[in-house]
Design a binder for these strands. Structure first.
Lengths: 177, 177
DNA sequence: ACATGACTGAAACAGTCGTGTCAGTGGAGG
DNA sequence: CCTCCACTGACACGACTGTTTCAGTCATGT
């Protein structure tokens, strides 16, 4: 149960890393930017690793809210892509990709398991959206794996090029109906 | 025109970052691991940024060799996936993803433009593999964008879960013919 | 023989890193 | 009033960062 001050500072730190990235964040500049001090951050989060872990969990909370609100049934993929391609979400998704890559390179530490966890989260949502008769078949598994791949590959493209038109039309062509 | 010693050390450093990652590499441990010294690395590459840039270019060279060898015509996507999913290439692809993510967070520095460049490289290969009559149409552009997205999304999944069977069957289902 | 240029070792530079220490605030509950 | 506890400021610690300075070594070309 985090204290009020803790969640307040976490929120500020979260806003900070959304624009500065998580990879080479350091306590002193971060503390200065959010009007705090390294002493307080260490006191509240125990260590830098604790802070990073809290920030990762905070980012994941945003993701889980989306997945909970997205619903099921036909059109999930289109709705997911709508959310993924929204310019307002770009900082969050860049942060997400950063954490994803990092968790692959450095399987220990606060990043541990981040990539695998998001794969499973999303696959589960896509599974829930499938018709019942394919949900537990090999074809169903392959199908939602393919949907997830398309969404994330398209996201990679979009984040790099910013060419929403081209990428959206590519995604849309796959799930028009 | 790099000297013999320079390419030799670059190759050793490349092998090092393939297993240690590029994000938090530092000169002293790297130099020690490859039997050199920070003095020499700085002398040969000018600065750490110069070294990182050289390493990125080295990684890109591996990628370009693949793209040159992959040929054109039907089956490119399947052949590309065969290469991407080969266990031997995993370190390279993890490094690739790391550089990709980093270039999005920190658009300046040695990473600049890395993500965008690889998108264009791959799209061009896929374009060359398309039948002539669609190559310059909007549908052709959307089609190869979609192929690229699928490949890279599948790669993300594979790197995180290692579940080659599931992912490969998902990719295969899209391009069986 | 000599000079040139590629390469290398040792040590130091100023700076930043995460973290620990010690000493306080300042408000809430007894 | 007094105590307790969440929180904070100032400062120092050792380790590490990229980079520089100064001094070589060694083979090569003339």
């Amino acid at each position: 149960m985090p204290s009020a001050r803790e969640t307040e500072l976490l929120e500020a730190a979260y806003r900070y890393v959304l624009t500065h990235g998580l990879a080479d964040v350091s306590l002193r500049p971060l503390a200065a930017a959010i009007g705090s001090s390294t002493r307080v951050l260490l006191y509240l989060f125990g260590s830098k690793e604790g802070l990073v872990k809290a920030l990762l969990a905070r980012a994941r909370a945003d993701e889980l809210v989306l997945l909970a609100d997205i619903g099921t049934g036909p059109g999930v993929v289109a709705r997911l892509w709508e959310w993924l391609s929204a310019p307002a979400h770009r900082p969050l998704l860049t942060l997400w990709l950063e954490a994803y890559a990092r968790s692959l390179v450095e399987p220990d530490g606060p990043w541990a398991g981040f990539a695998r966890a998001t794969v499973e989260d999303w696959l589960e949502v896509l599974r829930a959206a499938q018709p019942e008769d394919v949900r537990d078949t090999a074809a169903g598994l392959a199908s939602r794996t393919r949907e997830l791949a398309l969404l994330r590959g398209a996201l990679l493209d979009l984040l790099a090029t910013g060419d929403g038109e081209r990428v959206t039309s590519a995604v849309g062509a796959s799930f028009a109906g």
